[in-house]
Design a protein around this nucleic acid. Sequence first.
DNA 1: CCTTGAGCCTGTATGC
DNA 2: TGCATACAGGCTCAAG
Length: 300
Amino acid sequence: MPELPEVETVRAGLQKWVAGRRIERVEVRHPRAIRRHAPGAEHFTAALSGRTIVDARRRGKYLWLPLDGPVEPGDTAETGEAILAHLGMSGQLLVQPPDEPDEKHLRVRLEFADGGTELRFVDQRTFGGLSLARLVRAGLGGAELPAEIAHIARDPVDPEFDDEAFVAALRRRRTGVKRALLDQSLISGVGNIYADEALWRAKLHWARATDTMTRPAVRALLADVRGVLGDALRAGGTSFDALYVNVNGESGYFDRSLDVYGRDGEPCHRCGTPIRREPFMNRSSYRCPRCQPRPRHPHP
DNA sequence: CCTTGAGCCTGTATGC
DNA sequence: TGCATACAGGCTCAAG
């Protein structure tokens, strides 16, 4: 499942393979894949044709491709436009030769004026999608980013991530610590997998009440979040099935070094106690019952 | 305002 | 064999 490390791997691939290339033709094969683009498929296709992709950027799990050329008529303070992409659970952005047969779940195809490789958005479960976004300046001295994601917090890999503001904000919340880690308006880029991994490293139960955590405990957790993400980034992203592949179709391999996620019944790498899977927010959480015992006063 | 939980979507795995 | 059910889970939106 694409979380921050996987999306960053894709971003780096896009920067290498599509930045600087002019879009000639766009084909929308499934309307749901551009459902966040309100004006519809025809507008999306027309607006992209002839534009050049100038960069590949990312915040959390979102990535966008800034475009050259004209902004929409009437725009004033805005700084430009970009193709905004979210991979959802099963989305892939593949750079493929034109003669490569279409993937079964091909949703959008971008062909370039140079006649070389094309960019394909492939997504089995269609939780992800593409849209055309306006770039805006987020606050004074803020980053330039798509208007739709201006509410998303900086991710912990961002050099401008404010550690102490995060520590204070988390401690102000009245919720469980895992829910806080998954809240993209508090910290972005962390999903179910890396949340579980970071909590295992920090020896914290998912239901630990955020307002009972000390400042040093939150700082330590943040360091473990960075540790997990950093290890995954170095490994090139995680893959659990064939659904996630990077921009060139190459599978990630960080799954070999996971400590808890997907390891129900297998021994904890620290103490040998069998890892346990349990329901959490309509999905699953994995933890070591001994290293991460239920807190005395869990958040309900 | 903040917190919570249902629903979206489709392919795979499992049980009867 | 066929059918039903559970599961994967980031995000949105409505309700509390």
